[in-house]
Write a protein that binds this DNA or RNA. Structure first.
Lengths: 78, 78
DNA sequence: TTGACTTAAGGCAAATTTGCCTTATTATTG
DNA sequence: CAATAATAAGGCAAATTTGCCTTAAGTCAA
């Protein structure tokens, strides 16, 4: 690749904040959420810290584990 | 990696259908959408065909180009 | 303090995505 | 039909994500 793939800090941060907010509302630990969602625990940590630009599949898995709709994880204030 | 990363066909297909639907509503070609969103044209094709599990940053870029909210691209029929 | 729990942080190899490119295939219109 | 636009499809190297792992740091109750 000549140019790195698109990384939008606002998109990444929006997802990070929403995951953290919904997770703490459920009083789930990062590890518990990861287990329910079927992903690696360290990924939840990286997503909430905004270090990775994760995929639509992971967003769906997290939403299902949090018992919310996938679209809610992309909600923006506006 | 020992295990391939999570790919959820339902998540990928949901995004694919939503991008295609909103894009055609705007009467934009895949190429035009890609140019506005600042991504590669072939990516739009791959996303709409459901061959890739794209990122939250790309979802935000597409939404902005389509003049909709990012969450709308993850809408599921309940 | 001690201990248990939670989160942050980082390394690593393999899998995947991405940008750039080319070549078919499929409308669609004149 | 010819020509043009639009889409599908695939290759490639580099960048990124992911799963698995370890270690450190922070939190909180007993």
């Amino acid at each position: 690749m000549d140019v790195p793939q698109l990384r939008d800090p606002i998109a990444i941060k929006t997802l990070a904040e929403n995951v953290k907010r919904y997770r703490t509302e459920c009083t789930l630990s990062q590890e518990a959420l990861a287990n329910i969602a079927g992903i690696e625990y360290s990924q939840v940590s990286r997503i909430e810290r905004g270090v990775i630009n994760t995929s639509v599949s992971v967003i769906f898995a997290l939403a299902q584990a949090l018992d919310i709709r996938p679209s809610q994880l992309l909600e923006t204030k506006k």
